[in-house]
Each structure stands twice: as structure tokens, then as C-alpha cells.
Simulated assay, not measured.
Amino acid sequence: MRALVTGSAGLVGRHVSAELERRGWVVDRCDILSGWDALDVFRQGGNDCIQHYGLVVHAAASSPHRAAIDGEPQHFARNLQLDSAMFDWAVRTGQGRVLYLSSSAAYPVDLQSGQPQRRLNEYCDLDLDGWVPVDDGWYQMTPDANYGWTKFIGERLAEQARAAGLPVTVVRPFSGYGEDQAEDFPFRALVERARRREDPFVIWGDGNQVRDWIHIDDVVAGMLAVAESGTEEPVNLCTGVGWSMAELAHIACDLVGHKPRFEYLADKPAGVAYRVGDPARFHEHYKPTVTLAEGIARSLR
């Protein structure tokens, strides 16, 4: 049982590598930050010199946080290159199952205004042909910025690789978080501001942006459960429950006994208004166990 994890220095990569090792897998960790660029793996030549893996977890991506998504378009080409090279390599060398991390950013932004509130559904709300049905007809798919387009295209590549005989599992994580996440991501940024008792307490946007927060323990256990099932349907990794940025900040501040003045920065990247997943298909494989309050408390500890 040998696995390759790309992006192994990132939040998901670190935790899935550790969990696979705990389950008895031999894990090759591949990350550009540790000096092993995934593209070097994918560009190797003949099959005789290539390791064959029972599982390839493709978590590598270039700067998938809000500030980079909105303000650093150069990552688009890098992420497309990573995904296309990975699928080409996996098909060409006859790798085992690929676990491809897509994203909730692949869903159409028009469905995430919060008016009305709706939980994003794998069956109804994302069509890889590029069109989604609505009550009065059809409208064109528009994922969330270049990062969303990368994942949309990645899912199309996954379909083509599957048609070529490669077993592929596609999961769509929503707002994953954890105690060791970087402060580039909103959960950790807000929790650390509470820990430092910052006053004023800064929140990007108006604070009403709602996200489906899912702890990294549930992301990892859930994605591996989906992969083990062998399903060929994409699966949301989500809780189905939405919490706003302001609510998250208030919970963290309450837990440390901090009562700051909140300052909202409308000129900062805020993302869509309402992004919550439908967990029905996910629950066929796994049900999350870590509540948001528990996850915040863990991070503060």
C-alpha cells in the first residue's frame, strides 16, 4: 500500500499524509516547498522508472486563498498545468485510484448570492458541459474566479481520465480549517485576532459572508471514505450548516473573553455572499463529527 500525496506541505496534504501513514500506507510526500515539485514527477519519461501507486491524492495548488484568488491571476496557469500534467501522467503510467481535490469554488457564483439561501447540490448545481437549469431556462456556468475555473476544468479532465480507464474520485471541499492552518485563510486569521485580543477587530467585507466550515479531521476522514467507496460521482465535503464571518469572530472572542470594536473592510476581498453545501451525498459515506465551536476551541488551545 503505497500512496503519493502532492501538496503535502499544505493543510490537507499534511493531514491526509499523516492519516494514511496511521492506516499503514507508505506515503511519498511531494511538495514544492520541500524541494520536490509535483511537475517533476509528472514529467518523468518511460514507465519502467516510475513508481506505481495504489492511491494518488492530488492536493497540490498554488495559493488557493482569497487574496491570491482575487489578486494574483498568475496562479491560474500554474494550477491548470499541475492538474493536466497529473492526469496525463496517471493515465500514461497506469496509476491506481486518483483522489482529486476539486473545490466548492467550482459552483456557479450566481447561485451563491444568498437570495434565496440554497445549499449547493452536486446533482443540480454544477454541470460540466457548462450550463445549469433554472426555473426560467438555462444560464451559463461561472465558477468563482480563476481558481474556480481551474477546478471546473480539473473535473472535466477527471472525466476524460476516467473514460481512459483511470479510477478517479472527485471531492469538493467547502471551507476546510484546522489548528495549524496558515493565517492567509479566514478561519485562522479570525481566531488569531481573537487570541491576540486585537481591538479594533478587523473583518474583511461586511462580515455577513456565510461559509460551510468543516474541520480538517472531517475533510480527511470524509475524502478517504469517499475514495474507498469507489463512487464515480463528485461529492461535497461539507456540513450543510452556514456560519458568517462575523459569527465566527464573535464565537472566538467570547471564548477568550474579548469584547472588541469590530471594523469591517469593504475594500478587501470578501468572496461570494453564501456558500453552503448540501451534505446528503456526503452522508452516504461519512458524517462530520467536529462542530464549529469545538474547532474554534481546539485552535484557541
Rank of each mutant, 00 (worst) to 15 (best):
M245W: 12
Y274S: 09
A249N: 03
F262C: 07
S229W: 14
G230T: 05
C253E: 00
E228M: 03
L255R: 11
R261K: 08
R261I: 06
L248M: 08
G271E: 14
F262M: 13
D254H: 06
V226H: 00
G271L: 08
P269S: 13
L255W: 01
A246R: 15
F262A: 10
A266Q: 14
L224D: 10
A227Y: 05
E247L: 06
T231S: 09
K259S: 04
E233P: 06
S244R: 01
S244T: 13
Y274P: 02
V220W: 02
M223N: 01
S229D: 07
C253Y: 00
K268P: 06
A225I: 05
V220H: 06
V226K: 01
V220N: 02
V220S: 05
E232C: 08
A270E: 15
P234V: 06
M245F: 13
E232N: 13
D267E: 13
R261A: 07
L255A: 05
A270H: 14
D254G: 03
P269H: 14
A225Y: 08
G240I: 01
P234G: 04
A227I: 10
E233S: 11
S229V: 10
D267C: 03
M245I: 04
K268C: 13
L248F: 04
D218A: 12
V235M: 06
N236F: 10
E263D: 11
A249M: 01
V272A: 15
N236E: 07
V272Y: 05
E263R: 13
A273I: 07
A225R: 04
P260L: 00
V272S: 15
C253G: 02
K268I: 01
G240F: 01
H258F: 09
G242P: 00
P269N: 12
H250E: 09
E233M: 15
G242S: 00
A266L: 15
V235T: 09
V256F: 06
A246N: 10
A227G: 11
M223V: 12
S229Q: 14
I251H: 05
A270W: 13
A266K: 12
A246Y: 14
I251K: 15
V226N: 00
V256K: 10
C253R: 02
F262N: 05
P234A: 11
E263A: 10
A252N: 00
M245G: 03
L224A: 14
V219F: 07
Y264P: 10
Y264Q: 09
E263P: 02
G240Q: 00
C253D: 00
L255D: 03
E228K: 14
R261S: 05
E247R: 12
M245Q: 12
C238V: 06
S229F: 07
E228Y: 04
T231I: 09
V226I: 09
M245V: 07
